[in-house]
Design a protein around this nucleic acid. Structure first.
Lengths: 307, 307
DNA sequence: ATCACGCTGTAGTGTTGCTGCATGGACATC
DNA sequence: GATGTCCATGCAGCAACACTACAGCGTGAT
């Protein structure tokens, strides 16, 4: 029973296919396919089944993939057991964050981790759809992700059920405020209610991306649906559009609270917020250096609302 | 980090040397040595150190070996997870027992396991010194071993501390009675006391073998040491010698209670007994078929004194 | 009907891990 | 103090394994 084959099985599950799995494992699909077949021959049970032109794990394959997580965790614990005898646990840790989270967190994180000494961080900004955060954990040690407030962590992140190989560490809750230009009629207000702003032209994020659904909550207290005039993912572009008077938008408070050309108005009456979490593969989370990095993130965000 | 290398590390620890480890792994010492060096290069910590002309694990190596046990257990759990989807979990299970235990248990065990169906047993009788039962678990799935009564399991079996990779399942406690020939002056008694028999000529087992120390307990209540005239390990030879009037001996009650030519006299006043345990490597114990076999052993001996 | 996509075999190749043997250090014996 | 034995380790050679490249085939989309 080969470790690499178990790894391949996990990858096929999370990425729903041999080809995608092969990509993250940096091998050809043929190699993954062969690993699966040898694994299958070894255990004597059907592990995968064709569905359409794709592939899916059987119940046995699913169980084995779950067990494979424990194997990977045990292996990483073994490595960690040795690292405790090293005076300077070094190594490379990759961290990815969605765009605005990266802006808010990564500079200070890099400063703090540099101060720790021997860990060298590899920062990435990955702007992906909501469903693609979890697969990212196969390529990146620490994934900083966000999701709409209100969902439970296990509902927000697929495969976060215990044993499924995902560790979720909540960092903070960040309110989403209504951004208006400085010369907007509401700009002088301390806060707004949904009915105050539901009639505006809205600039939203693309469908499928995190917090896209939050805007729908604005209309929940009213009888109208918000009118979305633009769909822009980059919050800085959104802010520039708002500043220029092309509409209003929901923007994260901590990242854009000090923007000079727009005004952020808290929403009263509904919970408009996103939650920022750290996602990790359970085995990666065992690495001491990874733990250190996450500890820094927790310390950095301790002052923020943990909600 | 290779599984086989971790396995090699464990073997080097239990067998105290590269050569002995290589023997149980069915490879050359050179291969084991190379596995250790690649493992060492991988983790970056010294794992072994020369001591005399031999080799010993460092603290780091010891910790890694402990962690390696968990890896092996996780791997075996993975295999077991697949086997639950198999309707007939089959496979080979090897069982070894010390000589008299084998005589008492193995015939019925074989009958019972045959009745279960697809498991094929590989029986072995291994008469080894007390310290050599634990290393046996590397070659045999289920080791039936015995030890003097009164010792705790962790004292009796090296490496049985939690995490050390050994599972101990107590089976039963078997009294050791004084065997005398039928025409012996004491043969009519229901029981004897140490002072009754301490002056006899004793036939004992060789030093270092299980229950060798129990005879010393006979003299504890008296001021004399028992006179050992012969040292014979095979209980049937011992019984024949006793029957021929060449001395008395301590023999296990359940195995020799019905011997026609000797009489077994319970010892009053001291606890003269041995304990029979099942020893397994933790990873081997995870196999479903191994569990089945052990369950049969437990059921077979349920009627005996579990002490 | 054609194309595109995805998984799976097969042949070829590069790497890996093992064996066999020689070396050097450590303990025991004479 | 010299010799022999035992044990771990390095090196060369070899065999087995795992991956890549490519072709084939089934499925779904255009």
């Amino acid at each position: 029973m080969d470790i690499r084959a178990l790894e391949a099985l996990r990858a096929v599950r999370t990425h729903r296919g041999v080809t995608a799995a092969a990509a993250v494992l940096h091998v050809t699909p043929s190699a993954v396919s062969q690993q699966l077949s040898t694994l299958q021959r070894d255990v004597g049970v059907q592990l995968t089944e064709r569905v359409g032109r794709g592939l899916r794990l059987t119940a046995a394959g699913d169980a084995l993939a779950d067990a494979a997580v424990d194997v990977a965790v045990a292996l990483e614990k073994a490595r960690a057991a040795c690292e405790t005898f090293l005076e300077h646990p070094g190594g490379r840790v990759s961290v990815s964050a969605f765009q605005s989270g990266a802006e808010l967190l990564l500079p200070e994180l890099l400063t703090r981790v540099r101060a720790l000494g021997t860990i060298d961080l590899e920062l990435l900004d990955e702007d992906v759809a909501q469903d693609d955060f979890v697969p990212l954990t196969d390529r990146v040690d620490v994934v900083i992700a966000h999701r709409p407030d209100g969902e439970s962590a296990s509902a927000g992140w697929a495969q976060s059920e215990p044993g499924r190989g995902l560790v979720v560490v909540p960092l903070f809750r960040e309110p989403l405020d209504v951004a208006v230009p400085l010369d907007h009629p509401l700009a002088g207000r301390d806060a707004v209610r949904p009915e105050d702003v539901v009639g505006e032209d809205w600039i939203a994020v693309r469908e499928g991306f995190p917090v896209a659904g939050v805007l729908a909550g604005v209309s929940s207290g009213t009888d109208r649906a918000p009118r979305v005039s633009q769909r822009i993912n980059d919050f800085h572009v959104v802010a520039a559009l708002v500043a220029a008077g092309h509409g209003v938008a929901l923007l994260p408070r901590h990242t854009f609270g000090r923007h000079p050309a727009i005004r952020l108005l808290p929403l009263r009456g509904i919970r408009a917020a996103r939650r920022v979490d750290v996602l990790m593969r359970r085995d990666r989370a065992e690495r001491i250096v990874v733990r250190r990095v996450v500890d820094e993130l927790i310390a950095m965000t301790a002052a923020l609302d943990r909600g």
